[in-house]
């Protein structure tokens, strides 16, 4: 678990591509710059999708942890 405080949490557990990314894009739009989005995922495809999405869209991946098949991301909205 991360100590980073999240502004909002998006739980995509059980869902697969494209839905985690579709829902992440929707969720980030509803946040303000500086807010932190916690994303919970079980789709292993997000291991590469989320970091590359952050780089592409100008967000900052603050943390990425994985335990028992659940991947937890914290993304700060920077733009």
């Amino acid at each position: 678990m991360s100590d980073i405080a999240a502004t909002a949490t998006l739980d995509t557990s059980g869902k697969c591509c494209p839905m985690p990314m579709v829902e992440t894009n929707k969720a980030i739009k509803s946040l303000a710059v500086g807010d932190v989005l916690e994303i919970i995922a079980t789709d292993v495809g997000t291991r590469k999708d989320i970091p590359s999405w952050c780089e592409r869209t100008g967000q900052t991946l603050l943390s990425m942890t994985e335990k028992d098949g659940v991947i937890n991301y914290h993304v700060r909205k920077d733009r």
């Binding site: 591509c17 990314m21 894009n25």
Partner: peptide, 11 residues
């Protein structure tokens, strides 16, 4: 359709 959804969600 999934590829289109994925990319369209990003704009």
């Amino acid at each position: 359709l999934a590829f289109a959804y994925l990319t369209a969600s990003e704009g």
